[in-house]
């Protein structure tokens, strides 16, 4: 399995309620633990969290509350060791909250945006 396929699998898994999963496909084995606190409590709402520790940089046109985003929309950049890493929305929906300011130091797993999912995806 390549990284893309694994990511796709994890995205699918996010929609299912579980705390521990073990998946075996031929030689490929994946074990996932999910932290109960990180699951969004509200249905149809997802938090976009930082995939790494770093400095958050907003876009030239900063993402605003109410804006529509798609999976591939770049929400900003996380700078780590002088490398800029794109933060992708990963979902289709509307920005409900912006939880980070330009130049903030962010930790791994810190929630940065709250996205209200488009209904067809949330179902």
């Amino acid at each position: 399995m390549n990284t893309k396929q694994i990511n796709a699998l994890i995205t699918q898994l996010k929609k299912i309620d579980f705390s521990h999963a073990r998946i075996k496909i031929d030689d490929f084995e994946l074990e996932i633990d999910r932290d109960g606190h990180q699951q969004s409590t509200e249905l149809g709402v997802e938090f976009i969290s930082s995939p790494m520790i770093g400095i958050f940089h907003q876009n030239q046109q900063p993402v605003m509350v109410g804006e529509s985003v798609e999976s591939a929309t770049v929400l900003g950049q996380i700078e780590s060791m002088k490398l800029y890493n794109e933060l992708l929305a990963g979902f289709n929906g509307q920005v409900k909250k912006v939880l980070v300011n330009d130049g903030d130091a962010v930790e791994f797993g810190q929630n940065l945006f709250e996205i209200e999912l488009n209904e067809d995806i949330a179902e």
Binding site: M52, I53, G54, I55, S80, M81, A105, F108
Partner: peptide
């Protein structure tokens, strides 16, 4: 390494 060092820089 990058994550640990980034914490040190921050």
């Amino acid at each position: 390494r990058e994550a640990v060092l980034m914490a040190g820089i921050i």
